[in-house]
Design a protein around this nucleic acid. Structure first.
Lengths: 172, 172
DNA sequence: GCCGTTTTGTTCAACTTTCAAGGAGAGTTC
DNA sequence: GAACTCTCCTTGAAAGTTGAACAAAACGGC
């Protein structure tokens, strides 16, 4: 039985989390699962769909012509194309989204927000914003909001499928 | 057509998110979905289970006697009892958890971490910690870590099924 | 043009999560 | 101790997600 650290290649000593980090991680997990859950229920109740689906509609509503290529939509929502296919199929069945062929690329599909979809969004947006506000922003100081934004931007940046070149040896 | 705000009951003017808040919210959504996804894949690959399930094993491993009542486990993980039932069934099938009757309450069940479960945990913990570290803590300053912890604690507190008395008129 | 590669979006099967319903024991009241 | 109510946990079906496999179109030499 040899003792780490420091001799030979062998498995590197894992650097555990400090107490502070553990507490932060725990709080992070609790907060994120509770919040996602909360919003899922809120939207399922008031809009008849889960939070992710709602996000798709929002994204479409902000897009030029209220339409986006499937891949763009998936990337914007940070979900897989497969998941999006199912989601759009469901939203289509609800009449909130319609598919159109992409004129420039015959492989492509455009997801288009319908009138009904827009109406549904207008109807449920206030309640949803209120829920987000009540769970998050109303409880934070402006400094905390600012800080949270910065932190989350860093984390997202680091996990981006493309932009994560920092510590990946095979990328330049 | 009357104009809000301020006359009569009517639907209250929704208070929209400021630009800062919108950016923060967007970053939050991106970061949390990317991170959860990332960890899910990491654990699915290295431990053969999703992140939530892994969390259950961790919780058991830290409990006295390496066992917990189903309800306690569910509360600790912030998931429903139903979800836990299914999860434990699956983990049991893998041999990582075993169920035992609760001596003091015949309705109760204890989830117990098995030897194999503990072994699996020991085997996969280093990789998982590394993943968390790489995605989160290695990118934050100590002040940011501290700040994130505080913020998440506030949010979790506010959504706690029980402790959320702050703005609920029907409590007290 | 032709061939190999890449991109796009869908589909299938396996798995996970949700929601409503329900059985069984514990607690409470009279 | 009977009748109510509540808590504990499970179940089954429906909804959602995942990962691998796939067809079709686009791209990139050569």
């Amino acid at each position: 039985m040899t003792t780490y650290p420091g001799d030979r290649p062998g498995p590197p000593e894992p650097r555990w989390l400090s107490d502070d980090e553990q507490r932060t991680w725990q709080a992070y997990l609790h907060a994120t699962t509770l919040l996602e859950d909360h919003l899922d229920r809120q939207l399922q109740r008031d809009a008849g769909m889960p939070h992710v689906y709602y996000g798709l509609l929002v994204q479409l509503s902000e897009a030029p012509e209220k339409r986006l290529r499937m891949t763009e939509l998936a990337e914007g929502a940070k979900i897989t194309r497969s998941r999006l296919s199912h989601a759009v199929a469901r939203l289509e069945k609800n009449g909130w989204v319609r598919r159109e062929e992409c004129p420039s690329d015959k492989r492509g599909q455009l997801a288009v927000l319908t009138e009904e979809g827009e109406a549904m969004l207008t109807r449920s947006a206030p309640g949803h914003v209120a829920a987000v506000r009540q769970a998050l922003f109303d409880r934070l100081t402006p400094e905390q909001t600012e800080s949270l934004g910065a932190i989350m931007a860093i984390v997202a940046e680091g996990l981006q499928p493309s932009g994560s070149g920092a510590d990946l040896p095979w990328r330049r």
